[in-house]
């Protein structure tokens, strides 16, 4: 096979406060590779950096260091109006991106893709009453089957959220304080003490 579907390479985002003596208030660091199409579950407390990670992958947020390669293409070097052809961020039901445009399009690369390769679902509304969960999970499977990479970000607060993650995800990322923990199975994931602490009563 050619390039990995996603390579997050030495990615760092620092937020600082103060002009003269800036103090770092938050730092996200990520370095991982996804070789093949997959459904990846992303979990972590609010404010841990999940959405920042998604924004860095879609290129709507600029990293302090490192790069994101989507099938070999550096997302942050692609024209703003074509970045969502590589990676698309779904905020619940609709999609919003605000790209800070700092370079003219002709200096940048084309996406080379019509339909997004990486699909990041940020806390979709799951409701056991309306039946849409089934349709959404089938859609994630379909995307994966068509060679796409799916990230499903959830902040589980009900037991069925864990059922969803267990059913659909083949690997997991746990984000806490800007650090990522990776797991290749649900069992491995919940073997980590910080994850057990985070999920608390849902695991019992």
């Amino acid at each position: 096979m050619g390039q990995p579907i996603l390579r997050v390479d030495g990615l760092r985002k620092s937020y600082r406060r103060g002009l003269l003596r800036p103090v770092e208030t938050f730092r996200l660091e990520a370095d991982f590779t996804v070789e093949e199409p997959a459904v990846v579950g992303v979990m972590g407390p609010n404010g841990s950096g999940k959405t920042t990670l998604f924004e860095l992958i879609t290129g709507s947020n600029t990293p302090s260091a490192g790069q994101v390669l989507c099938q070999g293409r550096n997302v942050h070097e692609v024209r703003y109006d074509e970045r969502d052809r590589l990676a698309i961020h779904y905020h619940q039901s609709y999609q919003v991106r605000h790209f800070r445009r700092t370079r003219p399009a002709f200096l940048m690369q084309r996406a080379g893709s019509d339909y997004p390769i990486v699909h990041l679902f940020d806390e979709p509304q799951f409701n056991t009453q309306d039946g849409y969960i089934g349709f959404m999970l089938d859609f994630f499977r379909k995307l994966r089957g068509e060679g796409r990479l799916v990230f499903l970000c959830l902040h589980p607060n009900e037991r069925f959220h864990l059922e969803i993650l267990q059913e659909i995800c083949e690997r997991f990322v746990f984000v806490r304080n800007g650090r990522l923990t990776h797991a290749d199975s649900f069992d491995e994931l919940v073997g980590h003490e910080p994850v057990r602490e985070y999920l608390g009563a849902l695991l019992r």
């Binding site: 056991t128 009453q129 309306d130 039946g131 969960i133 089934g134 349709f135 999970l137 089938d138």
Partner: peptide, 11 residues
């Protein structure tokens, strides 16, 4: 036929 649909009100 979807199991999640069967579990919902729609089921």
């Amino acid at each position: 036929e979807n199991p999640w649909v069967r579990r919902s009100n729609l089921g």
